[in-house]
Simulated assay, not measured.
Amino acid sequence: MLLHKSQNLTFFNPRILNHSGVPFFDMGISAGFPSPADDFKEQRLSLDRELIKNKEATFFARVNGQSMIGAGLDDNDLLVIDRSLEPSHNKIAVCFLDGEFTVKRLKVNAKGVWLQPENPNYEPIPITEENNFMVWGIVTNVIKKV
């Protein structure tokens, strides 16, 4: 369900399915030479249980832009955001800044707070008292298409 669309992010509310899950083979997948699998342990894997720790405070948002490519967040990736987590230094956060949502790495020290992009083509954003600023949530996972 679409909740909000801004210039940089599109927010969705996750729909939790109680009995969802897909087959999961807990054997590891070799990225080198193939090896014969002697025994397969099939289980059910729920991405809801894996990615969402607090369903009332979790939202999805789709990235729009290139400012966080160095952190592995590419255009059109889907972010899992937990609003119940405390913001802290070096966390990747979704922030509301002067009327617009953005995703950046939080930098906090004795001199202040700033939002650090992970792309050298973008400048850090210092947060001042003049800004309308709030940390909206902390990014916990990113879902990519391959």
Rank of each mutant, 00 (worst) to 15 (best):
L2W: 02
K5C: 07
K5H: 11
S6V: 03
Q7I: 14
N8M: 09
L9P: 06
F11P: 01
F12C: 04
I16Q: 08
S20L: 08
S20T: 12
G21E: 08
G21K: 07
D26T: 02
M27Q: 14
I29T: 11
S30P: 02
S30W: 06
S30M: 06
F33P: 00
P34R: 03
D38Q: 14
D38E: 15
D39L: 10
D39Y: 12
L45G: 09
L45Y: 12
L47W: 09
D48F: 01
D48L: 01
R49Y: 04
I52S: 02
E56V: 08
F59L: 10
F59H: 06
F60I: 03
F60L: 11
A61T: 09
V63I: 15
V63P: 01
Q66V: 10
S67R: 04
S67F: 05
G70C: 06
A71I: 03
G72Y: 03
N76F: 04
N76K: 15
N76Y: 06
D77Y: 00
D77F: 04
I81V: 15
R83Q: 14
P87C: 10
H89E: 08
N90E: 15
N90G: 00
K91L: 10
A93P: 04
V94A: 15
G99H: 10
G99D: 06
E100M: 10
F101V: 09
K104H: 11
R105K: 15
L106H: 08
K107P: 00
N109P: 07
K111M: 12
K111N: 15
G112C: 09
G112M: 10
V113D: 05
W114Y: 15
W114L: 14
P117C: 09
E118I: 01
E118L: 06
P120F: 06
I125F: 07
I127V: 14
E129I: 10
W136K: 07
I138V: 12
I138K: 00
V142H: 02
V142R: 06
I143W: 01
I143N: 01
K144D: 00
K144W: 00
K144R: 13
